[in-house]
């Protein structure tokens, strides 16, 4: 559940500010009408979800603060949503919500592209942002303290459109007898699509799962977990963050 620089899936679940790793671009999409296109442009939607209409999006006002940038071949910037203080690291080409796309990262600042032009944001400063989110972006919302809510219907649609969106491998090892430890086992993600179910839940390649509702997991169980998250109820996954195992609770409504 750690926030990797190279992936942006976790941000799709931010309450007010979402930085999506969506692969879709701007412009007309299959399944949308010219009226939809005009309405989406008027709304300020820059990064569209295919076959969506204005009714699939919502907007919120918030502030974004640019904490800083890391230069180099893989330059990235770290931004914070001042409402929740959740942070995200973004690269050039990544989007912030559906209304902004990072167009430049340079020492001391970043540029954000929007349908109304380019916004220049300096390190340490705040930006009044109109955050636009598709309902897929809020299918799972991280409330902090390892507690999430999941919208069952939206997550079912995410699953239908993008699938589980993850692969994993089983790992195990037997500690030497002098440690007194039992055999250890875990499931490690080998790939995560930011648009799929597990991407929406904040998981990334390399993240470790230990158990589902108290039962040990296998890599082959991923789709079963995804399916569980499309029905009302509570799902508890134990994950390992740098070896620290802790439960993450998903309340599905």
């Amino acid at each position: 559940m750690k926030l990797h620089i190279a992936s942006l899936a976790a941000v799709a679940a931010v309450a007010l500010v979402a930085v999506t790793g969506c692969s879709v671009g701007s412009g007309a999409d299959e399944g949308t009408t010219s009226a939809d296109d005009a309405a989406l442009t008027n709304m300020g939607v820059l990064v569209r979800e295919p076959s969506s209409t204005v009714r699939d999006y919502q907007t919120n006002a918030t502030k974004i603060r640019l904490y800083g940038v890391q230069s180099g071949d893989d330059a990235f910037a770290t931004i914070a949503d001042r409402t929740t203080w959740k942070t995200t690291s973004v690269h050039v080409g990544d989007s912030i919500g559906r209304g902004y796309r990072v167009s430049a990262i340079r020492p001391g600042s970043i540029d954000l592209e929007s349908v109304k032009g380019t916004v220049h944001l300096a390190v340490g400063h705040d930006f009044d942002a109109k955050m636009i989110q598709h309902r897929f972006d809020t299918a799972a919302v991280d409330h902090g303290k390892h507690a999430w809510t999941v919208d069952a219907a939206s997550m079912a649609d995410v699953r239908a459109h993008y699938g589980t969106g993850a692969t994993a491998e089983d790992r195990s090892a037997t500690p030497p007898s002098d440690t007194g430890l039992p055999p250890q086992a875990a499931v490690a993600f080998t790939s995560v699509n930011a648009n799929g179910v597990f991407g929406r839940l904040g998981f990334h390649e390399g993240d470790i799962l230990m158990s589902l509702d108290g039962a040990q997991l296998q890599a082959a169980d991923l789709d079963k977990v995804a399916e569980r998250l499309t029905h009302p109820g509570t799902v508890t996954l134990v994950v390992s963050d740098q070896g620290a195992r802790h439960p993450v609770t998903f309340t599905v409504r």
């Binding site: 750690k2 942070t87 690291s89 303290k145 390892h146 963050d241 620290a244």
Partner: peptide, 16 residues
Amino acid sequence: SVTGAEMIGGSNNFAA
């Protein structure tokens, strides 16, 4: 305090 928290990253960082 929250297991897994960072000073900077995520939803349980210092500011949160």
